[in-house]
Design a protein around this nucleic acid. Structure first.
Length: 628
RNA sequence: GGGCCUAUAGCUCAGCAUGGAUAGAGUGUUGGACUUCUAAUCCAAUGGUCAAGGGAUCGAAGCCCUUUGGGCCCA
């Protein structure tokens, strides 16, 4: 058990006291206290103030007195604060033992929210016509981190990447290849996804702008793409798969992995749409418009003042939302699976099996990548569309919140960075744009970070061999990129600045990793294996108790993060844990104390911290280095 | 015209879901700590009408309403 033990104990006892007073239905809180106010606080007296017609302090006094008579094992004393809060002080000798012993177990930090049910997390979903830029990375890292957290919360997670291989953006590069003479192999060994995005896509788009008559070619190519048997479609399939391979390489390098790739072109050809179209009509979720501007169309009625949404146009073609509806239903397992599956050509570096959908009926392999719940990570510009899908899915499936759109604000470029890319924004931040070539590629940010980290590492460790430096630089760079993408709230815009993003001091992943390395070195130098068989009463310094307390909060934080799909919670927890350790590091020596018992006690704590931080960092997809 | 998000220290952000204590970090600036288990660290100082106005409440950064600035989506 962890810090939760004492919280539960206090909750139980307070409830008993309330029972004695014949008071029910009071939703009081029992939470870790703010620093300086004991270990645990409850607001129970505020909530009763009105009912009992007493001021909170008097009530707190009464509770404090009654609490003495309860059987409690972990609370040393209670205190009624003049403000009215009821504060509790823990018996740290006992609580430390509980927390530290627990922390040595493999399952430390596990919480059971999912009850081993399946959940789909879909993220990435980038058009396969360009390399991933820093804005896509936010999506990818949020998705990956959330799926790691959900796994820790006992969900069986299926991670999907939706490959939008049949839209306008793909048509654009195909026009470039087919009509504007771009070479099918990238010149001078440039990564193929970079070549398609930086050269083919941007320059083809420029040509449209110069000559609007080219629009006809574009439309023609798009039509050919939609017809799966055409020569153009086959050509496009070949190109987009090569781009996808490049994108996946970027993701894998960041320790992001998937279970299945779902191709949009196959969803369109699978017949899923007609199945769901009938169902929508049956359930009267869509209506045939007989008058007005949408006459002859099938529409979803807008709620309140919102516009109706056209699903099928009067010429019988489906709008793009029509693709999303059957796909969402498929993800929830509401439709017969029209797909077969085959393994992806390349193996993922962590050896996790990666599958892809196929409509090929030979050697059918059936798999199930659907889930009882679905989390779709898409930026909040698509909130309106996702709201319609969410509401439709709510009507198909009775479980509340079965389909969740996890939205987040976009990544913009700082005016300095935009300027460096050739756009003067007059001091304002700039929206990234793949068409205009205004973006910062993820691979290049990684490369810059790695160069800088290498330099820093060399400065500190002249003795290290190049491959070790390389490894540290890689780990630190990936961590930095990942941490920056999730440390703030999802609804805050990230203004990306190339220079500032290279910072390795302060509230960064580097700070946290460094702290882990410090702990590792102590253990290494001790030449002992830390054990849990120690004298817990020796850990009584404030910085020691503080650290233990933070360690004990791990599972509470995981619960919070999983319930709210909030990766930030774990990022902050890692940071807080690191701060607590650094404070301990400054205040309490571990080695060469001349007191073996105290050394062993502190070693046990250091090891507990190290294990916990490593687990927490693992949820963020960040490796915990032993040296840096 | 309609909808969504956002506003907290010079800058970047926590805290807001579930109202109560002294509104916290990082960064910046200034000063201090390496002969010590790693200074990618730590300590101290500095810095706040929580956008503005109103409302309900014993009590609001947080809840409700209005206005304004910024961003996005739809038309």
């Amino acid at each position: 058990m962890t810090f939760k033990s004492i919280i539960d104990e206090i909750k139980n006892n307070l409830s008993k006291i309330l029972d004695e007073l014949f008071i029910s239905d009071v939703k009081f809180s029992v939470e870790p206290a703010k620093p300086g106010f004991g270990d645990v606080s409850s607001n129970v007296s505020f909530l009763l103030a009105k009912q009992l017609k007493k001021n909170p302090k008097e009530i707190a006094d009464m509770f404090s007195k009654k609490f003495q008579d309860c059987t409690n094992t972990l609370v040393l004393k209670t205190e009624a604060h003049p403000s009215g809060y009821l504060n509790f002080y823990a018996d740290w000798e006992k609580l430390s033992q509980l927390i530290l012993s627990e922390s040595y177990l493999d399952e430390f930090g596990d919480v059971d929210i999912g009850k081993n049910s399946t959940i789909v997390v879909e993220h990435t979903s980038v058009n396969p016509n360009k390399a991933l830029h820093i804005g896509h990375i936010r999506n990818i890292i949020i998705g990956d981190t959330v799926s790691r957290i959900l796994e820790k919360a006992n969900y069986k997670v299926n991670v999907l990447n939706y490959i939008d291989d049949s839209g306008l953006q793909v048509a654009d590069i195909i026009v470039g290849f087919k009509h504007f003479g771009f070479a099918e192999e990238s010149p001078n060994g440039k990564k193929f996804d970079h070549y398609c995005g930086d050269d083919v896509y941007v320059k083809t788009t420029e040509k449209y702008e110069a000559d609007p008559s080219l629009e006809e070619i574009r439309k023609k190519v798009l039509r050919e793409l939609e017809n799966g048997d055409s020569e153009t479609a086959k050509f496009a399939d070949n190109i987009t798969r090569k781009v996808l391979a490049g994108q996946l390489e970027t993701c894998w390098n960041l320790d992001v992995f998937y279970d299945c790739l779902n191709f949009e072109s196959q969803i369109i050809r699978s017949g899923l749409w007609s199945e769901i179209f009938e169902k929508l009509k049956e359930m009267s979720l869509i209506e045939f418009e007989k008058e007005g501007k949408n006459v002859g169309c099938w529409v979803i009625r807008g709620e309140n003042k919102e516009e109706d949404k056209v699903i099928v146009r009067s010429n019988d073609t489906a709008t793009y939302i029509a693709k999303d509806i059957p796909y969402a239903a498929w993800k929830l397992g509401l439709l017969d699976d029209p797909f077969n599956y085959k393994k992806y050509e390349k193996e993922q570096p962590n050896s996790r099996e990666l599958w892809q959908t196929t409509l090929n009926k030979n050697n059918p392999i059936s798999k199930n990548f659907t889930g009882g719940k679905v989390v779709t990570v898409i930026d909040s510009r698509q909130a309106r569309l996702q709201k319609i899908i969410t509401s439709l899915m709510g009507k198909f499936k009775s479980i509340p919140d079965a389909y969740v759109h996890l939205g987040y604000e976009s990544v913009t470029l700082s005016s300095e960075t935009a300027k460096a890319l050739g756009l003067d924004t007059e001091g304002k931040q700039a929206q990234m744009s793949g068409r205009k070539g205004l973006y910062v590629n993820a691979d290049s940010v990684y490369k810059l970070l790695k160069e800088k980290t290498k330099e820093e590492t060399k400065k500190r460790h002249s003795e290290m061999n190049p491959s070790e430096i390389e490894k540290i630089a890689h780990n630190v760079s990936v961590a930095t990129l990942r941490y920056e993408m999730i440390k703030q709230d999802l609804d805050k815009i990230i203004t990306f600045d190339l220079t500032k993003s290279l910072s390795l001091e302060g509230d960064t992943a580097t700070y946290i990793q460094y702290t882990h390395a410090r702990a590792s070195r102590i253990l290494e130098k001790s030449n002992r294996t830390p054990t849990i068989d120690i004298d817990f009463s020796l850990l009584k310094e404030k910085s020691e108790i503080d650290l233990i307390k933070n360690i004990g909060l791990f599972n509470l934080q995981v619960r919070d993060a999983a319930n709210n799909l909030s990766p930030k919670v774990i990022a902050r927890y890692c940071h807080d844990l690191a701060v607590a350790f650094n404070s301990f590091y400054e205040n309490a020596k571990v080695l060469e104390l001349g007191d073996l018992n105290l050394e062993n006690s502190r070693l046990c704590l250091v090891n507990s911290f190290k294990i916990t931080l490593e687990k927490a960092l693992n949820l963020l997809g960040i490796t915990a280095p032993d040296r840096m």
